[in-house]
Design a protein around this nucleic acid. Structure first.
Ligand SMILES: [Mn+2]
Ligand SMILES: [Mn+2]
Ligand SMILES: [Zn+2]
Ligand SMILES: [Zn+2]
Lengths: 138, 138
DNA sequence: TTATAAATGCAATAATATTTTATTTGAATT
DNA sequence: AATTCAAATAAAATATTATTGCATTTATAA
């Protein structure tokens, strides 16, 4: 099942409408090789589909909430989620040279289990992003 | 040894000059309870010490390189480092309500050791930030 | 004290993100 | 097929964060 089809399924399940802007953003992110900003996405949407950047931000918000996409904070950009399951912690390895962001799962993640208790923090979410050089760029 | 004194020592050891703007930023961050943006810092500097925000960005760059401060990506703000040693991984727990960012050390951190190898990534640095509610706000 | 690399100031601009209000539309219901 | 309305979008303004290039100043060492 493609990323777009999977995303449509999740949107419907959660009572979100399938709209032009949402489809446009999904199609752009399906193909993207590196994290894209809202403005990058605006540029990648076909010209015959006009789309407002504020709308893109709102679409991205919904997609993030549904874990269809993730924000890569190190790059201020957005990427599709490469994993269907919500098991484990979705983390990123980012190449400083070519810009790619590879998602990987952390099965046992300190941040989710032991650490919040030690810190007396009620954990809601967290981000783990590693920067370095990918195999091709190393 | 205070944060400011420690920072001066590190600056000198690395052949950076001790300047007005650098001292001003150090003094602001020494007192700050939550992550501050460059513009926040500008506002906190005493009025009789004029300081350009571009300079603040440049000062912050140097401080980050020297690990005197860290950027909290979840908040787009900067905080002083609370640990002297560069041992372990410096991570943050951030309160969504009051905004405080508590630094903690991860002694054995998956991101630094095993995972980059599995991913064929040459790891240079990484960020770990947990969001939630602190003890007071929970 | 003087020389000089380092640091800063200034002006312009870029990049990312949010708020508010008015209007449009997807899709469920009739 | 038409109706209905919450949900979604557009538009305009504004806010926030960050960078670049070039002229000038300054902290420190010699
Ligand atoms: Mn994911
Ligand atoms: Mn630290
Ligand atoms: Zn690469
Ligand atoms: Zn709190």
């Amino acid at each position: 099942m493609t990323f777009v089809d999977q995303s449509i399924k999740i949107l419907k399940k959660n009572k979100y409408k399938i709209t032009g802007p949402r489809m446009a953003v999904l199609n752009v992110l399906e193909e993207a090789k590196i994290p894209l900003s809202a403005y990058d996405i605006e540029e990648h949407v076909p010209e015959h589909i006009p789309i407002n950047v504020v709308t893109i931000y709102r679409v991205l918000d919904v997609f993030e909430t549904l874990n269809i996409i993730h924000k890569v904070h190190t790059k201020e950009g957005y990427v599709r989620c490469d994993f269907e399951l919500q098991k484990g912690c979705h983390s990123f390895a980012i190449c400083n040279k070519c810009g790619r962001a590879d998602e990987f799962l952390q099965e046992k993640c300190d941040l989710k289990s032991t650490l919040p208790k030690k810190l007396a923090y009620k954990s809601l979410s967290h981000i783990s992003e590693l920067s370095g050089l990918c195999e091709q760029c190393a």
